[in-house]
């Protein structure tokens, strides 16, 4: 399978959107080569602003541009976007409803060698608690591009979580992907795996291993964490009776929590969560870290089995 980092898809999407939408402004905080906003800067330098290593200023200034009529994509690493600038995003972007797309890269354990100070597992939790905020975590290059375009086209704040590592591209170019709608990737009747981001591909692998053992697993790509597609979750809970969530994020507050909130209120079923287990990360190769911290297809497989 072809591989591509979702941040690379972001760079391409920016250039494409920039040609149609003269109103698009792109901003960064000294990481344009890593977040890929450099691609936009090359073509539209007059609509690109580097704010230096000043993430709070980045998001407050983005709010100002947006409140003056621009649509802004503002990027840095997820740690420094959702983390460092949290309260600015909450008050100047969320509370005001400013049309800012917080396109945050290098999320999660697959940051790799830079280690714990740069590996954020808290961003989805932080962002989804902000009223009016749309929260998106694409699973591959194709869906990332489509979701970024839809996010820019809608009005209002949006957090888009992107990755550093190259991940398999499994969607076809013409795949039907819409913001706010979970994608049913594989039907199944015994259990449902609801995954987001890079864990979607792991979920597909786990499902095929489970199939060999006679367990029929449904797989849903939940690329939009907020607003959450409750319908597809409840249908899955009712029809399969068991739900396992998988995310490259803390099991506290992210996709797992969001799904549990829906399930417990409407259709309580057995659930298990795969994700970072309330601990910090460390330096290492992305694949080694995924294994050590329990975010592989094998972990999903085992969590599913534990429900039977």
């Amino acid at each position: 399978m072809e591989k591509m980092a979702t941040r690379k898809a972001y760079g391409q999407a920016l250039v494409e959107i920039g040609s149609e939408n003269q109103n698009l402004v792109v901003m960064d905080a000294d990481l344009s080569g890593s977040t890929m906003t450099k691609e936009f800067k090359k073509v539209y330098p007059e609509r690109f602003f580097n704010m230096g290593i000043a993430e709070q200023d980045l998001y407050a200034a983005a709010a100002g541009l947006a409140l003056s009529g621009k649509v802004v994509c503002a990027s840095t690493f997820a740690m420094f976007a959702a983390g460092r600038a949290f309260e600015i995003i909450r008050n100047s972007i969320g509370y005001t409803g400013a049309n800012v797309k917080i396109c945050a890269t290098h999320a999660g354990i697959t940051v790799g060698e830079d280690g714990a100070s740069h590996q954020t597992f808290e961003d989805l939790a932080l962002m989804r608690t902000i009223p009016k905020m749309t929260v998106v975590n694409p699973s591959d290059g194709v869906s990332a591009k489509k979701l970024i375009k839809q996010a820019v086209a809608m009005d209002g704040p949006c957090y888009i979580r992107l990755g550093r590592a190259e991940v398999p591209v499994f969607y076809e170019e013409d795949a039907d992907i819409s913001l706010g709608k979970g994608n049913l990737l594989k039907d199944g009747k015994d259990v449902t795996i609801i995954a987001t981001g890079i864990m979607v591909n792991e979920a597909m692998m786990a499902a095929s291993d489970l199939e060999k053992e006679g367990i029929s697993a449904r797989v849903i790509d939940m690329h939009t964490i907020k607003p959450l597609d409750e319908e597809i979750i409840l249908k899955a809970a009712k029809e399969t009776g068991k739900v396992v969530t998988a995310e490259e994020h803390s099991v506290i507050g992210g996709l797992g929590s969001a799904v549990a909130e829906v399930v417990v209120k409407n259709c309580p079923v057995k659930m298990a969560m795969v994700g970072q287990m309330d601990t910090f990360g460390e330096s290492g190769k992305p694949d080694q870290l995924k294994e050590k911290y329990g975010m592989t297809s094998k972990d999903i497989y085992e969590k599913v089995k534990s429900l039977f």
């Binding site: 060698e113 830079d114 280690g115 714990a116 100070s117 740069h118 460390e282 330096s283 290492g284 190769k285 080694q288 870290l289 050590k292």
Partner: peptide, 13 residues
């Protein structure tokens, strides 16, 4: 440095 399990993290711990 920077290897899995090393004390010598990418950024000092």
């Amino acid at each position: 440095l920077r290897k899995l399990g090393s004390k010598f993290q990418g950024h000092p711990n």
